[in-house]
Amino acid sequence: MAEGGPVADLRQGLERLGRTFTAKIWRLGFAARFLAYLVLHSGVALRRFGLTIREIYFAGVLSLIIILISGLFVGMVLGLQGYETLQRYGSSEALGILVALSLVRELGPVVAGLLFASRAGSAITAEIGLMKATEQIAAMEMMAVDPIARVVAPRFWAGVISMPLLAALFSAMGIFGGYLVAVPLIGVDQGAFWSQMQASVDVREDILNGVIKSIVFGIAVSWIAVFEGYDAPPTAEGVSGATTRTVVTSSLAILALDFVLTALMFTGGNGR
């Protein structure tokens, strides 16, 4: 085996790589089929809307505090840092534009999405994973209740509904934080702060695109969260691993999708 050693090692490594790759592709396909099945069987979640409302409470209302406070602080930091840079060029009145545009276009949807993934996405995964580990899902199937329609779909739609609202609140809170720093603390003129902001933020171009971003992130995070939970190995280890994967995968998905969406929305044509 002395001569065949390295070759065998290489072959083994390649085989392992191939197996992992095949498994990943397999899993991606399953996730896509899962999403299609979920959307097709979400009639119950929409007809018995109380189920979805309950999940909006857990995913949305309980995430409210962290979203509002982070938004406030992000806006305040943007105000301070933006002022430092802008006052060098003698245009500190443009602080309103800087804070509003960066929040509405980018930071609002992205940071709210990241917070939502770690606050609500992980909870959804852990909950569904534990239901599977304690065989509640199997029991539902036994009673001829479709667990995807009854358990998964309400959580998915709750995430999709909550995410744009949370992102909008994050941006609004951030702009308020930026205002607090700019006007009472630094002493930027209040009229210039608002009017410059209003003159350069476009409702369709900036705000609507931000909302579209947050809806896309909401779909991505909710999909990843429910899928990881449903696909988790029914052990304590499996559920904890799935929770970690939810946060990692959805954070990466948000950042990657953000790049694609920004490239589509803000570089096309209008030449700003």
Partner: peptide
């Protein structure tokens, strides 16, 4: 829970309205 969710949705829509009117200046 309905009340909380209702308040949350109303708050979120108010945030959007604030962005559209005060920040984006739809009304002026």
């Amino acid at each position: 829970i309905d009340a909380w969710v209702g308040a949350f949705v109303a708050l979120g829509l108010a945030g959007l309205l604030f962005l559209a009117l005060k920040v984006g200046n739809l009304a002026s």
